[in-house]
Structure formats: structure tokens, C-alpha cells
Design a protein around this nucleic acid. Structure first.
Lengths: 184, 184
DNA sequence: TAAGTAATATATAAACATATATATATATAA
DNA sequence: TTATATATATATATGTTTATATATTACTTA
């Protein structure tokens, strides 16, 4: 399960709680993977059962105790193996394209409105990558001194940026084509 | 649920069985949505309960009877409304990028092997879109005479092509960058 | 001052998706 | 000739993900 291996990946840097891990997911890899806390917590329990993690409780008074998870040698091996395994292409799933596919059923304004809206969403996403994710990677690189690692973090960000740029171009082109169509 | 609306979309062209619908999914929209038969059949039953479809049985001797589904007026309304609703961006989920993100844990050859492999997969996918999907759309446009519709089918295909081209460029760039890195 | 958010975790239900098994006849490919 | 694919559907189990509810205290914002 990729979720488990992403968790292993972060825990290979340092021990953390589920809550901490959620922050890392949201700040560093949300452009290609995300998970809710309600998925992360049970996954961590299982991984402990699997022998990939150990856990120790950090007692606190005013809020729930922190359960700090640490990767084991088995966990490191599992991560390393998984990283080297061949990977299938991720299938694309985008409901927006279903709407476009059947766009002939809408009138011109409605389908154009859809495209304009989606264009804006993707532009905002692009901006957010260029600002927030970029910064987060930078910050992490400095804080941890993991220079080589940060090259790879940046590669994933570049893919995110290219992806958004692709959508933006496509939306703009599509709008032009539809505007040029004969009305009926 | 987008699955149901995609089914409605195809049934808005003509009555069909679940098996037929599966063919359409695979041939026309698999570049952005797919579904197994084991998901399509129950969905059709539900949609009938919802009043979006009617069904009649076409008796056959040597193979299972065909259950032919036909869209109702309610179904058409539901489809039309859904097509006009604003759409959230589809989140990206790609396990390959998790591998890249933690690529610093692999040695250079292993991560390069991953990238080369993914590059090939995406090149094959691109070729397949340009050949098969392209052709299928063409064929459908001619067979059904739905000219205006086919413009939209082509738009989704263009997005698929752009997407694959993006991956291909990114893989090639990433390979170059990693090859240029200092070894450690 | 009231409402929201951060910090931390658990539990349960529901929704969505895949895998697999079961039937059965014909046609096609190795 | 044997295996696989096509044509059609159902059923069940399992896996994955999201949603929602529940606790508690401190801090921040309106």
C-alpha cells in the first residue's frame, strides 16, 4: 500500500506521531498523495503489528498523549524494496473530463463557464505550488541538511507544476475552440 | 457519483446493457475514467431504483439474457444538472512520485531505472491514445453522426495526450538532472 | 466574550473500488 | 487440441478512502 510506504519514508527521517505525519503529507506531498488522519492512524497501528515500526508513548497532561512511531530495520528494508520495485502507471480519474466528454449536451455558455472555472482553479493551484510547496521544500532542506534528498523533492514539485501548466494550456485552448464553433 | 453520470451519458445516446457500457468505457473514456463490470452492474440496478433508468430483458438461449437499460426523463434531467454543476479539481494520486520523493534512498542506477521504465510506459500510453482512442472517436463520430459531440470527445483526448507528453518531458528532464548530479 | 483553530487520538459507518468465483456457449488463436 | 477470448450476468469478500462523531485544553481571532 503506497500510504504505508509514504509513512515509512517520512519516518525514515525521524520518529513522529500520526499528527506530525499528517502535517508532512499536507505540506510536502499533497500535490501527488494525500490522506486523512482517520486513514493514517489505523495504518500506523497495522505497520506496528507488521514489525515495521515501534511506538512509545510520550505522556502529556493537557492533551492526548503523543504516540511516537519509530521505523525499525524491517521497516527500512520494506521501504527500500518498495522503492526499487517497478511501478504501474497511475490511472487518471477526473470527473471534469466526463463533463467535457458529454459537453455537447450543454449550451455553449454553460460549458464555457465550466472551463473558465476549472482554468481558475488550476491557476490557483499552480500559484500555490510555486509559493507554498516550493517554500516548504526549501525550509526542510535547510532545517534537515538533506541536500541530496531535496533534489528529489524538487523533481516532484516540478511535475506538479508541469501538470498544472498542462491543464491551464488545455483549458485556454479548449475555450478558444469552443468559442470558434458554429452555434446551433 | 461520477460513475453513474458517465453511465447516464452513454445511455443518453442509446439503450444498452452493462456489458455494452463497459466496452464504451474502455474504448472511449478510459484515459480519464474506468470501471469494472463488478462496479457497473450494481450501479445500473441502483440507478433503476433511483428512477433514472428503465430495464427490459432481451431473452437469449445460448448466453445470459441481455438486460437493456434505457434512460428516463428523470435520468436526462439528472445528467443535465450534473453536467452544469461546478466541479472540484481531481486530486492527483501517483505512487510513482512517492518513489521519486524518497529517491535519495536508492542508488543512482535504481532510481534511473525507475525513471526509464516510467518513461517507456508513458510513451506507450501516448502512442495508444494517438492510435486507438483517436480511431475510436473517429469511428463513433461517423457511425452516430454526432458531429458536435465528437468535438468534445476530441478535447478529452487532447488532454490525455498533453498529459502523457508532460510525463515524457518530465521523465527525460529528470533523468538528465540525476545523471548530472554528483555521485556520493 | 464567543467562536474557531491547533494539538493529539480513537471509533464507527458509509462510500467506493477491486478481486475473484461462478455459469455457459461459441469462436478464435497458439 | 488446448487455451483464451467473447458475450452476458450475479455474488461475495476484501481493500481503500472519506465522513463524522467524540474528547480536551490552550490559544487566537472576530
Amino acid at each position: 500500500m503506497p500510504l504505508k510506504h509514504a509513512l515509512l519514508g517520512f519516518l525514515s527521517y525521524q520518529p513522529m506521531t500520526g499528527y506530525d505525519l499528517k502535517q508532512h503529507f499536507d505540506r510536502s506531498i499533497s500535490h501527488f498523495w494525500n490522506a486523512k488522519l482517520s486513514q493514517i492512524y489505523p495504518a500506523l497501528s497495522q505497520m506496528r503489528t507488521d514489525g515495521w515500526l515501534t511506538m512509545e508513548v510520550d505522556y502529556q497532561e493537557d492533551r492526548p498523549n503523543r504516540k511516537v512511531y519509530q521505523i525499525t530495520e524491517n521497516g527500512r528494508v520494506a521501504l527500500h524494496n518498495w522503492l526499487g520495485e517497478p511501478t504501474e502507471m497511475a490511472p487518471v480519474r477526473d470527473a471534469f473530463l466526463i463533463k467535457v466528454f458529454f459537453g455537447g449536451k450543454l449550451n455553449r455558455e454553460d460549458i464555457l463557464a465550466q472551463l473558465h472555472r476549472y482554468l481558475i482553479l488550476h491557476k490557483e493551484q499552480l500559484t500555490s505550488y510555486q509559493k507554498n510547496v516550493q517554500q516548504e521544500i526549501q525550509k526542510n532542506a535547510e532545517a534537515t541538511g538533506l541536500v541530496k534528498e531535496s533534489v528529489f523533492w524538487n523533481l516532484t514539485l516540478e511535475m506538479g507544476i508541469k501538470y498544472e501548466q498542462g491543464w491551464i494550456e488545455w483549458c485556454e485552448d479548449s475555450i478558444k475552440k469552443i468559442e470558434a464553433m458554429d452555434d446551433d
